[in-house]
Design a protein around this nucleic acid. Structure first.
Lengths: 209, 209
DNA sequence: TCCGCAATACTCGTCTGCGAGTACTCGTAG
DNA sequence: CTACGAGTACTCGCAGACGAGTATTGCGGA
């Protein structure tokens, strides 16, 4: 599977707006911000002009005109090409149809949670749980406010995020429960390891997956 | 919040292994692969030597000795420093205690699912659902196999991933249900928009969040 | 005994992402 | 009427990241 000619997700965002009507880069940024697309994906505005130039280089957009408006610097207006339209749809198809290869960073953290003692682990997890609660609440509020204004289709990504946030909260709560009630087996060994630095050597170190 | 001196997650992985005992870079790679840490985080082995050099530059690890073994090139063995140990723990604390700022790419895809028609959306979502099923199955198998060999603590990230995978599958299944039964309101408008390219203008375009 | 492939242990050059800066303009409060 | 802060519309330099390459050794098979 050859990777995309323009890999930066900002490229996708750009395509999604020029696909509606021709625009100049700064306007794209404005529209994207105003629609809150930066909440759906990680966007670095510093890369905007580079990305647009790349899209042009690969024939996904083309310059239409240079407008001079007032004393400002010239603005180049870009339009999407048929190739760009195809790329955009294909990109969305890929995002919807295939799993992310990059696991969330929390998974990396969990896989190393051993270094924190049980006590630190508990307090950190409590913090995370609080943040998850806030995020869920924010999404619920947004949904309630937007539901009467927008078709379901445009809210689906928020519903998804809410569902995942709640699921993670549930999992963290469950894990926390095990930690605080002492139900998790090996808790003592863990605490001993963290306090003394000694490794209980009764575990077969050499495990392959 | 100042960002980490060494930002690459591979740096975290490296710290997690040198923290146990001094090692040379290639050995770190071997150990990390053998423990399957590359499933917990996105690791590019091409960056290994750069990252180790950076960790050294910032005083998180230091060179101990250069071993010459057989006719092979020299291997520099690195040891973790106290600063490195602190950085490592702090990094894990951050990963466990705070939410990822980068939403999953699927969310970006969902937010643009409109461009695919309902039919394409359905078939793509079916594919995703199948992949989610496979992933869940793989995790269940891994857990079953590893549970008798390893303490719970070392399996927690797999349990988390499994829980999240199942949650996503549930959500996708639900959404798919709405699409296929026609329960989702606005389905006709969507299909019409996709076939004709015309936008039903009965929606207030200018919505801020 | 000779070949070829896998593993070992790196190195290098390219490319690009993006933070930080710049320069100009407009509205407005004093 | 002027100074200042908030936009507007970009530009640039450079640190990294990473793919692809390289050179050597060991080993199994024919």
């Amino acid at each position: 599977m050859k990777r995309r000619k323009v890999a930066n997700v900002l490229g996708l965002a750009v395509l999604s707006v020029v696909q509606e009507r021709p625009m100049h880069p700064y306007e794209m940024a404005t529209v994207l911000k105003q629609r809150g697309k930066d909440a759906d994906m990680p966007i670095k505005w510093g890369s905007l002009y580079t990305v647009v130039a790349n899209l042009e280089k690969h024939g996904f957009v083309e310059a239409v005109e240079s407008v001079k408006d007032g004393g400002r610097p010239e603005r180049t207006v870009y339009r999407i090409t048929p190739a760009g339209r195809a790329e955009f749809e294909d990109w969305v198809r890929e995002l919807v149809g295939t799993l992310d290869r990059e696991p969330p960073r929390f998974k990396a953290g969990l896989s190393m949670i051993g270094v924190l003692g049980p006590d630190q682990a508990i307090s950190r997890l409590r913090e995370r749980l609080a943040q998850l609660g806030e995020r869920a609440e924010a999404h619920r509020a947004a949904l309630e406010q937007l539901r009467p204004l927008l078709p379901r289709l445009f809210l689906v990504e928020v519903e998804y995020d809410l569902a995942m946030t709640e699921a993670e909260a549930r999992w963290v709560r469950g894990f926390l429960e095990e930690l605080t009630t002492g139900a998790l087996p090996g808790l003592d060994a863990w605490r001993r390891y963290h306090e003394t630095g000694e490794f209980p050597d009764d575990l077969g170190e050499f495990v392959e997956r």
